[in-house]
Design a protein around this nucleic acid. Sequence first.
DNA 1: TTGTAAGCGTTATCAT
DNA 2: ATGATAACGCTTACAA
Lengths: 321, 321
Amino acid sequence: MTNIKDLAKMAGVSVTTVSRVLNNHPYVREDKRNAVLEAINRSNYQPNINAVHLSTGKSFLVGVVVPYIDHPYFALLIKGMASEALENNYKLVLFQTNYLETREIEALQMLKQKQIDALIICSRKCSWSTIEAYLLYGPIILCEDTRGKRVSSTFVDHYKSFMIALEHLYQKGHRKIGYCIGRKSGTNSRQRELAFKDFVENYHLPYEPAYIFEHCTHFEDGEQVIERIQQMSNPPSALLVTSDEVAAGIVTCAQNRNISIPGDLALLGFNNQPIAKMMNITTIEIPLVDIGRKLFLQGINISKEAAYQEIPVTLIERETV
Amino acid sequence: MTNIKDLAKMAGVSVTTVSRVLNNHPYVREDKRNAVLEAINRSNYQPNINAVHLSTGKSFLVGVVVPYIDHPYFALLIKGMASEALENNYKLVLFQTNYLETREIEALQMLKQKQIDALIICSRKCSWSTIEAYLLYGPIILCEDTRGKRVSSTFVDHYKSFMIALEHLYQKGHRKIGYCIGRKSGTNSRQRELAFKDFVENYHLPYEPAYIFEHCTHFEDGEQVIERIQQMSNPPSALLVTSDEVAAGIVTCAQNRNISIPGDLALLGFNNQPIAKMMNITTIEIPLVDIGRKLFLQGINISKEAAYQEIPVTLIERETV
DNA sequence: TTGTAAGCGTTATCAT
DNA sequence: ATGATAACGCTTACAA
């Protein structure tokens, strides 16, 4: 493997000069520059990036923490980050955690070890104080409302968006409303639960815990929802579904069992994924790809101040409500 | 940032000794070891991994090239690799290429630059000779049949599996068979096309180019397939669909338009994804997560010889054929 | 068992 | 404009 020293020898210049032409620095005479360039070509030279990293203290790697990669929500977020990474010459290091705290900490450690320049946490299990302890070592960006804290974030106000959705259902005459969610813990989930409680209280509706369906993340999870609803003596008439993917699964399963949508059950999805359009699912659009881009940009922007970007959502009416 | 030198000073030993306890080497007296350990605790020390990499020439990073991350086929492959990476203390660097050759080359460059220890290419656009040129710099693993070439691979014989599927359809009485595929180029696709041609020839069936549907990768692509079929005067009676996701989309769209499955159109999917089970889709099971694991292991195994692992597939009969 | 010192391949500082 | 040389933080002969 030829290195910068070899090049210097071949071109009859110093390593400094080689480094200069490599990095497009000024102050190098044309003939020397050419000599170096030629040496580079002849030798099939490639810089050892680890050496560069050690020397510069940067890695051009950004870590991304997601619970699951094989979930459209996160896949879309990643998509946005990946495209922005490409434009800025960064690479993404992926951490799939399955919501295991130890794996999140591994990612945090990599930040501390300087193997990554920044860490974007799309959804977390670990406590706030854990994260805080690592803030010292590099930017950590979150995809949840962090206003008031010393970390940047791009997020949607899930309280607000849930409220929009609930109000819409109410307008359409629904009084027995439930919702499907991935997990009950987590900042975003708690925001939604709060919205739900406030809504129910506001309109003097009964709070019905059985109307909350957990573990709804994939298409196929729709089946359980339908099953449980069918067993209920007093089932909900409408469901907020925090992922279009799951909403699509519910629609499909409902069709198979001759449950009419929205007649017997109204459905309001989230994200406005392509599948929602195809299946005509009413949904709350969340520009995930765009959020991904913004998250990434926050990660590589070295402004000391924490920034908080709230992303607005919009209701898209289709045929399931 | 405290470094190994500081530790040495604090513990009153040499850097070598510190390095030894850091790496669990033998030959270090208990009291010195403890002194170092204590210094580590006191100082909140964390090794700079880039320095380690430069020194050792290893990065414990493995690159993964996929065209799209937000596609279940690749997501499942990645899932397998990620879990194996975890067990072996490696991290994954993801390259989403969208089948752009330049992006594949970027990944190859990172191998050359030693930023990654190995590169796993799940699906490629670039030519064989391009890959060959980079073989020199580190292991490159492919997810396609590479027998006869000097690269390792884990793959399914798509010719064989397509043949199994086609035969099954034939047995069930189908004579007008078509198939849906992501893209027509690519090693795997060509294998399938070959199988299709041989099959058709074997049974003296007409080769009907219109029965081949390209650009079928996501659920929502099912809609176009149905649309095109409805416009045909002589539509196929059965379809091989190279992703269950798409098959599910076709089923859904068919239901909406009162097309009976398998009555009007039989469907045979691939992969046996969860969605196939839920929607009762007959499919060819391909153990993608397992393939992902094996690919990863090949990447980090430093045997000089190329290894070729063929993964068998099995037909799972359900209700769409 | 321990330590000195030479790498690893760059970039950055500082003379010249 | 150019080049020594130190620095980055670690591992690893080699010596003791």
